[in-house]
Design a protein around this nucleic acid. Structure first.
Lengths: 120, 120
DNA sequence: CTGTATCCAGCGGGATACTG
DNA sequence: CAGTATCCCGCTGGATACAG
């Protein structure tokens, strides 16, 4: 069975779309940060070290539009907004976990290979 | 258990490194194209539609340095070069498959959610 | 056939300032 | 607190020309 069964190179391909989404710098980091429950904007800003306010907002908006994250604004003063994974978003944690497991298990070999390549 | 168990935001993090690698436009497409055996440079150029010669070379070099792809040059005229997945490279197919399966199963929902968001 | 070298446009994304 | 708006730099990656 082929990894991709139909025109994997087309823009509309599901696999391609998913990779375009999770391929960016922040999406997976945000999803993993949200795995233990709801978090406020400022919490995310602090926990995902290095992310700018612009990219935090932008990535959250994209995840929300994709139905992976739910945004809840509480009409208080000062305003409070919480973000949490939807069921769909949580379902993505598993395949992501598979990838992370592979990384844990094999990135050492990759690293060694890189250094060999650099050396000679 | 956390998706990431240690400083997932650091540059050196295995997960981050893997995502940086597979996040780019061509890496996963090349790996999937190589899953059915060795291929010549020109074959890859034709099969991965839209890839430029520069990016094909560049991505193959990176995969080779990472130990995921093996390059074999045959001293013939005209020159023939074949690329194939290493055992390490093939082991990456499985977690990639998990991601592709998720995409097949759920990207419809994501797509619907996007259209809802667009509509209002 | 299998590359390498160079140029350059597009845009992702950071820094900064401002707002409800 | 939770954003939005704007400017602008750097890098990815396409096009093109050249080479072993």
């Amino acid at each position: 069975m082929s990894l991709f069964d139909y025109d994997p190179y087309a823009r509309g391909c599901a696999s391609r779309q998913l990779l375009d989404r999770i391929g960016d710098r922040w999406t997976v980091l945000l999803i993993s940060t949200l795995e233990d429950g709801p978090h406020r904007f400022s919490e995310l800003s602090r926990r995902v070290d290095g992310i700018s306010q612009k990219m935090l907002t932008q990535t959250l908006r994209a995840l929300e539009a994709d139905g992976l994250v739910r945004r809840t604004a509480y009409p208080e003063i000062p305003p409070r907004v919480e973000y949490e994974l939807t069921a769909l978003g949580r379902s993505l944690l598993e395949p992501l976990q598979a990838l992370v497991s592979w990384a844990r298990e094999h990135m050492g070999e990759v690293q060694a290979s890189r250094e060999d390549a650099r050396a000679g």
